[in-house]
Amino acid sequence: MTVKAGTLVDIHMVLLPRGQRAPRVPEDTAAVDLEMKVKGELLHDGEKGSIVRIRTAAGRTMEGTLTAVNPEYSHGFGAPVPELGHVGPQLRERLAQLRKEEK
């Protein structure tokens, strides 16, 4: 599926491969690549999974693997957390008690 030039895309690249990480990096971090992702405008038609060039918001040209087209912001909240459910009721009750004592 060809992505048209001018589309906002996300690209991915490896900056430092595993094993060539900075000195004093913890073991678990040294065993994985240092990766980078950045969004920008596709400078030419391209395919997902192929190497493409983009122009970033600061006007820089960057190259990497096209991984997402018009990428969504998918962070959110999720389900309510029952472990926080007692905080409001217990404090309201205590406050009401204090108000009664003041009278």
Binding site: L15, L16, V25, T29, E35, M36, K37, K39, A57, A58
Partner: peptide, 20 residues
């Protein structure tokens, strides 16, 4: 940051962020 028009470089974990 992107809504303010910034170029945002998102890196995986590591102190080499400073290098970038």
């Amino acid at each position: 940051c992107e809504s303010y028009g910034a170029e945002v470089l998102r890196l995986s974990v590591g102190p080499e962020l400073f290098y970038q």
